[in-house]
Design a protein around this nucleic acid. Structure first.
Lengths: 162, 162
DNA sequence: TATTGTTATACTCTATAACTATA
DNA sequence: TATAGTTATAGAGTATAACAATA
């Protein structure tokens, strides 16, 4: 791929044209960033069809799982772990608390901090979501062999971990 | 991976723990959706460090490229191509127009529609962003061989295209 | 002084619904 | 009737900055 390859006729690898509006995406289709974005959009849409009724997004699901496996974590600790600001996370926790999925308890030693826990309702919610998550995972990777699936997850992990 | 493997001690593959807050992510690290999300976050951050000063995001960049390669496209056509609502895209085009990157002209035959074009400033902007995009692409995939990079892009494309 | 959490503010992305102009 | 675009409204994610309480 070269930076000069910007002719309007350069649509050879434009696999997007088959289903969407049939428009050219130029050199985008050769970018990892672009295909990553497209894949994530596809996954998000599948996730929404099965878990949208529960009013949960992939990001929120990840938060609930982290609270489950790190019971008592502080908001700042959780915010750092997922890479968002404390103020952003605070509002998300507000919404979880309104839905009775997460509980803020007083931290035992640090009186400035909260300790976050799943409520029983939160635990149940996660438990009931689990089979849907695994079905979702199966469905979005059904076009790959087991080996390909492992390859993909390994490559993604290396990119994310660098 | 089994749905029952939810013990708090199940952190074997939790590569996230090394750099972030060192908290457990449970079974998340075995999900394609999770690793896809992490990889995209990493790419987004790298993109922002090189193109954030230009006040452009990956999504906006994709729109500008599509307008370049589909000069005269309508807002509805572009909205369908990227999978967002007309109202959402309209506001984005508003901002592009304020920045003089995109121009709304009257459609030649359909008087309800606009025809979208990059302005000269928009063309120049895209041209100057190009080398940064390719450097970004190189940087985020430097941990992969050429073959691995091709494998990854192919696997992502298959997931997105299904 | 530094940190935890909240609040105020702002911008973007996202969608739905109602509206107008036109097809 | 249907479509192109706008506007109003709403919710969520994102951030920065200032603040009170506490470490």
């Amino acid at each position: 791929m070269t930076a000069d390859n910007t002719s309007p006729a350069d649509n050879r690898n434009d696999s997007q044209r088959k289903s969407k509006g049939n428009i050219s995406t130029g050199f985008l289709s050769e970018l990892i960033g672009y295909q990553l974005r497209r894949a994530q959009t596809a996954l998000f849409q599948d996730f929404s069809t099965v878990l949208g009724k529960q009013h949960i997004t992939p990001g929120q699901f990840g938060l609930l799982v982290r609270i489950k496996y790190n019971a008592g974590i502080s908001q700042t600790g959780l915010a750092k772990a997922v890479g968002v600001e404390r103020s952003t996370l605070g509002e998300t926790i507000d919404r979880f608390e309104k839905r009775k999925l997460v509980e803020r308890r007083k931290h035992e030693t640090d009186r400035r901090a909260y300790a976050l826990y799943l409520t029983d309702k939160g635990e149940t919610f996660l438990q009931s979501a689990m089979p849907l998550i695994f079905e979702h995972e199966e469905r979005v990777t059904r076009c790959l062999s087991s080996a390909e699936r492992e390859t993909l997850i390994g490559l993604l992990r290396r990119i994310a971990d660098q």
